[in-house]
Amino acid sequence: MASIKDYFNDQNLMRELLLDHYKYPHNHGLLENDKYLSKRMASASCIDDITVQLDVEDDVIKDIRFDGVACTISTASTSIMSDLLIGKKVEEAEEIIRNYLNMIDNKDYDPEILEEANVFQNVYKQANRIKCATIGWDAVEEMLKESGKEDD
């Protein structure tokens, strides 16, 4: 059986996937709703400036939204992340984020749980762009940490 790695060795498929998420990002546009946590990622670099919203109910990620000024990689990576994490339990989401950040760091990770996010497996080769691939993920990770603290 073809593994998920084989699928993500097809350059044309990967390019299409990234283009699609860049041109038509999923879960794009912010909502005016107090139940969402919100994080603006404006200080990490002077280029990308995105805001990510997160709705967690009963330990499950119900929704993620994002918007802002962003390059192809930060837009596509945040879009793919939102698809991947919506509907997941917080614990599962944290595991996915951990694996994703490992992949971006060129460390060991489990490709099976990253699904479409495997498309970013080679971003580490563009060292100055690693932040672009993690900006949305960092926002969700930070909000999950902060909301976890409040529950304690």
């Binding site: 350059q11 990234l18 860049y22 498309v119 970013f120 080679n122 080769k125 762009r129």
Partner: peptide, 10 residues
């Protein structure tokens, strides 16, 4: 092009 710039990340 947009396609070319994306290709460098693949």
């Amino acid at each position: 092009t947009l396609e070319e710039t994306i290709s460098i990340f693949l």
